[in-house]
Amino acid sequence: MKESHFQEPYNDLMGDIIKKHAEEGGMDNLPGKGKPLSQDYFSGDTLQHFQRIAKDAGYKPHWLNLQQEIREDVLLLADCYEADITVDLEERLEEINKKVTKYNRSCPRPMQKGPVSLETIKNVLAKRGESL
């Protein structure tokens, strides 16, 4: 028996959504419509184009938001430690380290961070003392 060479049709979900949006008139009032693109969009690679357009549109990658959350959590924990509030210290460090793991999975490799420990909290407090 011969193998079937039947191939399922290609399903372009995003293309379909964009096409439907355009048909409904959603692309009619876009800023810059009908104007030539700047020469900046023709230089560099595709990733650079995406990053530039995303930045211009105000998009912030998830890992940057996560980085800010981790920073705020560490500073809050340092404040608690400085005030001698050590209840649930290990659990809070564990929660922060879960965020660090999630962050490391989504950020560029050179920006990955190590786990947060009590030593990290003490270093934050020491740096704070130096800047005062």
Rank of each mutant, 00 (worst) to 15 (best):
Y10P: 04
D12R: 07
K19H: 09
K19F: 08
K20W: 09
H21E: 11
H21R: 10
A22T: 11
G25Y: 07
G26R: 06
G26Y: 07
L30V: 15
G32W: 06
K35L: 15
P36K: 02
P36M: 02
Q39C: 01
Y41Q: 00
L47F: 07
Q48T: 12
Q48P: 00
H49P: 00
Q51S: 12
R52V: 06
D56Y: 02
D56C: 03
A57G: 05
G58H: 05
Y59I: 15
Y59F: 14
K60A: 07
P61F: 12
H62G: 10
W63K: 02
L66T: 12
Q67V: 09
Q67E: 15
Q68N: 07
R71L: 12
E72Q: 10
L77R: 00
D79Q: 08
E82Y: 07
L89C: 03
L89R: 04
N97L: 08
N97Y: 04
K98F: 10
K98P: 00
V100K: 00
Y103Q: 00
P108L: 01
M111L: 13
M111V: 04
G114D: 15
P115M: 09
V116N: 00
S117Q: 05
E119T: 11
T120Y: 04
I121D: 03
I121M: 02
L125N: 13
A126E: 14
R128Q: 14
E130N: 11
S131D: 12
S131C: 13
L132Y: 08
